[in-house]
C-alpha cells in the first residue's frame, strides 16, 4: 500500500523513530562529544563530536530530537539557535584541519524562531554554514533521517552526498506553515504536503538527493538494526569513494551538484 505524503509527514515526526544519537551510538565507536560554539554557548539541539566509523576517525554532527517532553525541552525540539550552527561549522573546520570526513544527520522542524535567535543572527549563522560547507576541503555526507525543515536543515546539508531515509521528508517549510501562507488555512496541511513534493521519492526524482535508504515495513522504528545496516552500508560505500577524490575535484563536484539546481 502506498503511503501518502501527509502520512509520511506524520511518520517522520514519530518520537519512536531512531534519533541522531541512536545513529551515533549504533554506527560509530567511541563517540566523544565536543560542546560549544566558542562565542556564546552550547546548543543541545545539535550534537557533535569525534568517533570512529569502521576504524576511520570522523566528525559526526546530528540534530537531536527528544523522546519525551523533558528531553524535547532540553533539545529545544531539535530547533537549533545560531550557536548550534556555529558549533557545527566549528567542528567541520576542525575536521578539515585534521582531514577527517564529516557525517551529518539532519532531523529538524527548522531553525528556531525567537528573540534570542534573531539577536544572535540566525540568518548570518545559516548563511555562514552554507558558504562554509561549500568550501570545506574534506568529504561531507548528510542523511535526512526524519524531518528536514527549511534553511535549518540545509545548514547541515551542503554536502558531497545527500541521502534520505525512505519515509523522511525535506521541505522549504512545514506543511502547516506552507498551508497557512499559501492557502491561508493551516488545516490544509494535508493538501500542502502533497503539493509541496517533500518526500524522499520526489526529491530523488528531482535529482536533489543522491539516494533513498530503505526502511523496514511500517517504518524505521519497527527495526532499528535494519535501518542501521542500510545506513552503515551507504556511509561505507560513499566514504570509500569520497576519501580517494582529490580535494579540488571534490569541491568542483560539490559546487556543480548544487549549481545545476
Amino acid at each position: 500500500m502506498d503511503i501518502t505524503p501527509w502520512q509520511k509527514v506524520k511518520l517522520a515526526r514519530m518520537p519512536v523513530r531512531p534519533t541522531g544519537l541512536d545513529y551515533i551510538t549504533k554506527l560509530f565507536d567511541g563517540f566523544l562529544e565536543l560542546h560549544g560554539d566558542r562565542f556564546f554557548g552550547e546548543d543541545r539541539a545539535i550534537v557533535g563530536g569525534l568517533a570512529f566509523f569502521e576504524e576511520i576517525p570522523v566528525t559526526v554532527i546530528a540534530q537531536q530530537k527528544g523522546r519525551n517532553t523533558k528531553e524535547n525541552i532540553a533539545r529545544n525540539f531539535s530547533m537549533p539557535h545560531p550557536e548550534g550552527y556555529r558549533k557545527a561549522l566549528r567542528l567541520m573546520k576542525q575536521a578539515e584541519k585534521f582531514k577527517r570526513p564529516v557525517i551529518c544527520f539532519i532531523d529538524t522542524p527548522g531553525a528556531y524562531c525567537g528573540i534570542g535567535a534573531e539577536e544572535r543572527g540566525q540568518g548570518e549563522a545559516i548563511a555562514s554554514n552554507l558558504a562554509g560547507m561549500m568550501m570545506l576541503k574534506t568529504p561531507v555526507i548528510s542523511i535526512v533521517i526524519s524531518e528536514g525543515g527549511s534553511g535549518g536543515a540545509l545548514a547541515l546539508g551542503v554536502s558531497d552526498r545527500v541521502y534520505m531515509l525512505e519515509h523522511a521528508i525535506y521541505s522549504i517549510l512545514s506543511p502547516e506553515g506552507f498551508a497557512s501562507i499559501l492557502y491561508k488555512d493551516a488545516a490544509k496541511a494535508e493538501q500542502a504536503a502533497k503539493d509541496m513534493k517533500l518526500t524522499a521519492q520526489d526529491l530523488y526524482k528531482f535529482g536533489i538527493i543522491d539516494g533513498i535508504i530503505p526502511e523496514p515495513p511500517g517504518g524505521a522504528h519497527n527495526d532499528y538494526e535494519f535501518v542501521m545496516d542500510r545506513v552503515r552500508k551507504v556511509l561505507k560505500e560513499n566514504l570509500e569513494e569520497l576519501i580517494r577524490k582529490p580535494v579540488d575535484r571534490l569541491l568542483e563536484e560539490r559546487y556543480e551538484k548544487f549549481r545545476r539546481l
Binding site: 558558504a131 561549500m134 534553511g151 540545509l154 551542503v158 521541505s171 522549504i172 501562507i181 513534493k197 528531482f206
Partner: peptide, 23 residues
Amino acid sequence: GARMQEGIFSLMQMAKVSAAAAR
C-alpha cells in the same frame, strides 16, 4: 524569503547562490 510555489528548489537556491558568492 523563499518562493513557496517553488518549494525545495527555492531552498536549494540558498545553497547555490551562497556557493557562487563563496567562490
